[in-house]
């Protein structure tokens, strides 16, 4: 299956590196046996992907059935592409597509650059202790679950005694219905994503920055380059491959916003801008029990994600970058 074709490249790539120097000496032994310990080490990882990622994909066939739990996959009637046709012709499809794309774009534009900027700023901090403590403080929110994050914001933003609205009222304004006004949902969503994820995101970029040769900075300084110029001409180009890899990964998640966050901030009053594919799969499949239909929606979402990753990767390669595979 696809399992067999996707799993090996990583393994053979590693073996290819170690293979060469020894390979010349004893070419007659099969490489698999010689690198058996490496394969053994890879085994848990491979097994994990097969069991938890590939095997469950078999369940996708219910998207082409009228799946009834009691009849099982074997006994449920096949309906071909009926569920897909229903999905694409329903009014909700355009609504979901619009909401999902809008929020994804907002995230790409506003949330994606934040960790890069933060990392650049942190990179310029010379006091080690200060840098360390800031780093720790900003990545702590990553370890909070969405339930906690949304609850904190709920307490802060409620109009019935929320701190933020209390301040607004004290200052003479009228309370802002952050939680129920459809216009506030997207800004609030993006802000929460940044608050929770930005600090964690900086780690990757900071790691990439440590790899930059210090001599480059010294040379630039001799040539009279200031802080800004050094950042622009040395740091940024050095982390460009990392940025591009992260960008491709972000593109792959374009329709995959994650169910939990949106589900928690959504209510009757902002549903028309908040309902996305992930929440729709939940309401249609789990709440209303239309398992096949929800599977079809999820299938579509996954396919779009795959296509987007491939496209982004091609594009990156065309511009002479490494890409993710």
């Amino acid at each position: 299956m696809s399992a067999a074709t996707t799993a090996p490249p990583t393994v053979s790539a590693t073996s290819a590196i170690t293979e060469r120097p020894q390979g010349r000496r004893r070419p007659q032994r099969p490489s698999f046996w010689r690198h058996r310990t490496l394969y053994l080490m890879a085994l848990p990882g491979i097994a994990y992907f097969l069991v938890f990622k590939y095997a469950p994909m078999g369940g996708l066939v219910i998207a082409f059935q009228d799946y009834l739990p009691f009849l099982g996959i074997g006994g449920s009637p096949w309906v071909g592409f009926d569920h897909f046709v229903r999905f694409f012709t329903e009014d909700t499809f355009l609504l979901l597509l619009r909401n999902t794309i809008t929020i994804s774009l907002l995230l790409l534009v506003f949330a994606f650059p934040v960790p890069i900027i933060l990392a650049l700023l942190l990179n310029e901090v010379r006091t080690r202790a200060f840098k360390r403590s800031v780093q720790t403080v900003i990545y702590l929110p990553h370890f909070m679950s969405w339930v906690i994050v949304v609850s904190i914001f709920y307490v802060l933003l409620s109009t019935d005694g929320g701190a933020v609205n209390n301040i607004i009222v004290e200052a003479g304004g009228s309370p802002v219905p952050f939680l129920t006004d459809p216009d506030w949902l997207r800004p609030m969503y993006v802000f929460q994503e940044i608050w929770k994820g930005a600090g964690w995101g900086t780690i990757v970029y900071l790691a990439a920055m440590t790899a930059v040769d210090v001599q480059l900075y010294e040379a630039a300084e001799l040539d009279g380059a200031g802080r800004m110029r050094q950042t622009w001409h040395i740091t940024l180009p050095a982390i460009r491959p990392t940025i591009i890899v992260m960008f491709i990964l972000a593109i792959g998640d374009f329709l995959e916003l994650g169910f939990e966050h949106m589900f928690l901030v959504m209510n009757s009053l902002n549903r028309q801008v908040g309902d996305i594919f992930d929440t729709y799969v939940y309401t249609a499949g789990i709440q209303n029990g239309q398992l096949s239909y929800a599977a079809a929606v999820g299938f579509f979402k996954g396919l779009v994600g795959l296509v987007l990753v491939i496209m982004a990767n091609r594009l990156a390669k065309r511009f002479g970058e490494e890409g993710v595979y």
Binding site: M1, A3, A4, S12, P30, F32, L50
Partner: peptide, 11 residues
């Protein structure tokens, strides 16, 4: 050869 073996193993 290596690739084949891994394939069989994963199956």
């Amino acid at each position: 050869f290596g690739r084949l073996t891994v394939g069989a193993a994963s199956a």
